[in-house]
Design a protein around this nucleic acid. Structure first.
Lengths: 354, 354
DNA sequence: ATGTTCTGTCAAAGCGCTTTGGACGATACG
DNA sequence: CGTATCGTCCAAAGCGCTTTGACAGAACAT
């Protein structure tokens, strides 16, 4: 059922039917009702392609998801981010196009989406150091919103972004541990080229500096955030001569690995070793207990998805508007994984036990 | 840059340029080279919408991801499945449209995609008991491939699907545990209405039946597969009077929760309590060690994505072809989480220790 | 009665592509 | 030499929609 058939059925012109359905005022209320009833009866919905060819708007937004060829990993936070964005799109009548693309095709993917007029806008994921995408996207002249920020150019205008205050969050978490008496604090971070990892390390370092504590590279790791990575990194550090008494981790799943390494060694989480994690509030890691297991910096990535989507929709509606920026503070929730630094001799006991 | 401009630049008709770029034989090799060079130089790519309006093919495939309103959870396996499907689409020149949709809008989402001619085909996720989608999709007359099967109608033809042999896998895993001497075997399953969960329980029951062991409902749980769920379910069972000596879990993340519950109680995984898990081989749960931590049924969901996508592409290419079906056997890999059932008195020791 | 402004409708153009049905030389064949 | 065939190319129609510009007819003012 297309517009022509529908209008023929009604004995009206395509013009009138189109106008009636799109809410234009030039059509009488009586005919509008008649048209709407007929449209509903025949389950008529305008052909997306024809409509967008005629209007020049595609009502589609692309998410280009980078998939590193090195690691072949799809970051699990995307699932939740996309769920959030999807909610917003649905309400606004947008479709979501997903491009999972590996490094070498990346630039081409963005160019293709723009040149083929496939989408009205894009969401950019996982900005990283030396990221060529900012320059590319500016050249392409397509509205876009970045989830995160491009390192180095954050305060410069010219693009819209939404980000958690990673620096402040990790500075705060580190200070919290320092206040509890911890002096050897490890950071189990994400891939070092990613912007959020850079900022988190920055916050961590600032807190150490402020407390006059030395930065020890042996206590910092950066990699793809899996449970095994968390476990192995923590195990290695805990088995080293001067082990940390506290860990900061960049994701819940890494924290689980750290916890396992701690417990494997007969140590108690929150008593012998403290852990603070960043928590993206992923739906499948959500705890049911009222008191959180982990002391954590909470920042719902699903909510980020919703907000980024809305920003982009607003940007598309008025392409001339100034870039939008939103810096969200993570909630710091104290759970059961942190406690005062143990007395200096606990390590000996632990080592003997091991 | 569009076709008309490009053809004007070249002093050729749109017809010729279009044919040259689409590899039709009615154009001389010399002009084809000339056209291709010009297209490259101007970074010309045909407008997706115009092309699909003219051809009637959208070169887009939809994935409708159900999001239960009860749980608001996005299953983490989707990320990997979609990464796999995305690879295939990219190679074949397809775009991927994602609809994250909650129960009440579900039917409308499918109808809309079909009626608006937005996509050439759909991938159907998470088939469940009493699923209204099969009837709906048949009526819509859109090619589709189901990841999994609709319970009850699996052997009937009429639709294409790709599935792991969940029944056989869990039957095998259960038998393996029985052979090791386990008599009290728990099943920590996914949401009970989901087809894979139904089949897994079926396999589990068959193995118990075959061994003459009773089915104990107290040893079976079904819910959203989170780490906490796995932990809590296992903790409860282990603390009950007649605890299981082995667990079957439906996902790696549930297995991690089970492991935590086991270790919390001072029990050793693989010695005091055995665990076998289904493992979707998600990229962020992949272990680096050569010997797997968990004895597991492996079945790469990313590979499922690749294969489902290819099936659908083939189906779209020839809509008259017979429905395709593919039943994949999971690899059974023995890791360190299983061992002989402990002597009957171990429980007393464990309980005292607790 | 005449001109003016609305109201409600329509025919037709256009969005950027593919594809049908020729046209026009050049070549091959009888 | 006339005719059939082939290789290249083109003009124009059409995909299903929106939107421009025009046009009757009713309503209003003069």
């Amino acid at each position: 059922m297309n517009l022509r058939e529908l209008s023929k059925t009604l004995g009206l012109s395509q013009t009138t039917v189109s106008r009636a359905l799109n809410g234009y005022p030039e059509v009488s209320e009586a005919t509008r009702k008649r048209v709407e009833a007929a449209a509903l009866r025949h389950d008529y919905r305008p052909n997306t392609r024809a409509k967008s060819l005629a209007t020049g708007r595609t009502m589609t937004i692309a998410h280009v998801i980078p998939m590193s060829t090195k690691h072949e990993m799809v970051n699990p936070v995307f699932a939740d981010f996309i769920a959030g964005a999807g909610e917003t799109y649905q309400k606004a009548g947008y479709d979501m196009l997903l491009s999972v693309v590996s490094d070498p095709e990346e630039a081409n993917a963005y160019r293709g989406l723009a040149a083929r007029n496939t989408v009205d806008g894009m969401i950019v994921h996982a900005p990283r150091a030396e990221d060529p995408r900012l320059a590319l996207l500016r050249k392409l002249d397509v509205p876009f919103v970045v989830h995160g920020r491009f390192p180095g150019v954050d305060e410069g205008d010219g693009y819209s972004w939404l980000d958690t205050n990673n620096r402040r969050g990790f500075e705060r978490a580190t200070s919290f541990l320092i206040d509890l008496g911890h002096r050897r604090i490890a950071l189990i971070n994400g891939l070092p080229e990613l912007d959020f990892a850079i900022r988190r390390e920055d916050g961590y370092r600032r807190a150490l500096d402020a407390a006059g504590l030395p930065f020890d590279p042996a206590l910092v790791r950066g990699d793809e955030m899996t449970e095994f990575y968390g476990h192995d990194a923590a195990a290695e550090m805990l088995d080293a001569p001067d082990p940390p008494t506290a860990f900061l981790t960049s994701s819940m799943i890494v924290a689980m690995g750290v916890r396992r390494a701690i417990q494997d060694r007969g140590l108690a989480l929150g008593r012998d070793v403290s852990v603070i994690t960043h928590d993206d509030d992923l739906s499948y890691f959500r705890t049911s207990t009222p008191e959180p297991t982990f002391t954590a910096l909470h920042s719902s990535v699903r909510d980020h998805g919703r907000k980024c989507a809305q920003m982009l929709i607003d940007l598309i509606a008025d392409r001339t508007r100034a870039p939008m920026r939103e810096l969200l503070e993570a909630d710091f929730l104290v759970g059961r994984s942190t406690g005062p630094a143990p007395a200096a001799d606990w390590r000996i006991t632990a080592t003997q036990r091991d």
